[in-house]
């Protein structure tokens, strides 16, 4: 579905030594739930912008279902297939009312009117925004606005949704809400003509990465680790070296091990089960 080969990107001229992305090779399959973490300045947002052709590789390629983002004739199709929900939804909301915001992308695709109305109604319902349909987006709360941004992206029925730090400006209750919305995308019944949706969650919060099946660690424009979150977070020292924290349970497990208690009964995955139980 998503194929990235030898991706380099530099904001400066091509001959500049300072590039933001430094040779990324990666493929993401349909239905995958991927988290991406990395220190500030690692290139996370740049990476996101390369995925739908907002930025074009200075070297290497990004292919979405076989089409290169460099092929300008395919760009509309690529942008429909790869939706991005940005950190601050205010930056991506353009319309005067909530329902027009959801319709905006569909209008641009030339979707027939009745079908468009049906999609808009469906999205309003799904993201619990029906009561706000005539409201001005800027009067919504942060969590509601983030829901609207996602609804507008989902109206395009994308195959990949990239979330660029969607929770970093929200209060804890709304952070949970956004995470559950992402989880819901993976629970949707898959239509015959559609591949299951893939999500990429860019986050500063290592605990959020535990909600995903696969974790990428980006550092200085390169992929440092690519594995299950549980495997990656056990590399506590290596992550700390690049300025990343691990969830508390991994740090304690690592500490017990360093104190010579290799056979300790404390295990991060057991703790996570206990933690999930305690939240119920």
């Amino acid at each position: 579905m998503l194929q990235i080969s030898n991706l380099h990107f530099s904001y400066e001229q091509a001959d500049s030594a300072q590039s933001t992305l430094n040779g990324i090779d990666l493929s993401i399959k349909a239905g995958e739930s991927v988290a991406l973490i990395g220190p500030n300045g690692a290139g996370k947002t740049t990476f996101a912008r390369c995925l739908n052709g907002l930025l074009l590789p200075t070297q290497g390629d990004v292919h979405i279902n076989g089409e290169s983002t460099k092929d300008r004739t395919q760009i509309i199709g690529i942008r429909q297939q790869v939706g991005i929900v940005f950190q601050n939804p205010e930056n991506q909301i353009v319309s005067a009312t909530v329902e027009r915001e959801i319709a905006f992308g569909l209008e641009n695709l030339g979707i027939e009117r009745n079908r468009m109305h049906a999609i808009v109604d469906n999205m309003l319902d799904k993201f619990n925004l029906t009561q706000y349909r005539q409201h001005a987006p800027h009067l919504l709360s942060g969590g509601e606005m983030q829901r609207l941004a996602l609804a507008a992206v989902m109206a395009m029925s994308p195959q990949i949704v990239v979330f660029d730090e969607p929770t970093s400006l929200l209060d804890p209750a709304n952070q949970q809400l956004v995470l559950s919305l992402i989880a819901d995308l993976h629970r949707q019944p898959v239509k015959d003509d559609h591949a299951p949706i893939s999500t990429i969650l860019i986050t500063q919060n290592p605990e959020e990465a535990l909600h995903c099946k696969r974790l990428l660690v980006l550092n200085q424009g390169q992929i440092l680790f690519d594995d299950k979150p549980d495997v990656v977070f056990r590399k506590t020292d290596e992550l700390k070296n690049v300025g990343l924290q691990v969830p508390a349970e991994y740090e304690i497990a690592d500490y017990l091990k360093k104190c010579g208690q290799e056979k300790s009964t404390f295990d991060p995955t057991d703790f996570q089960r206990y933690y999930a139980e305690s939240l119920k």
Binding site: G38, P39, N40, Q87, E165, S168, L169, Q204, P206, G243, L244, Q245
Partner: peptide, 10 residues
């Protein structure tokens, strides 16, 4: 600390 990484928060 909003939107900062763990180094920034620290």
């Amino acid at each position: 600390t909003a939107a900062l990484d763990s180094t920034g928060i620290l």
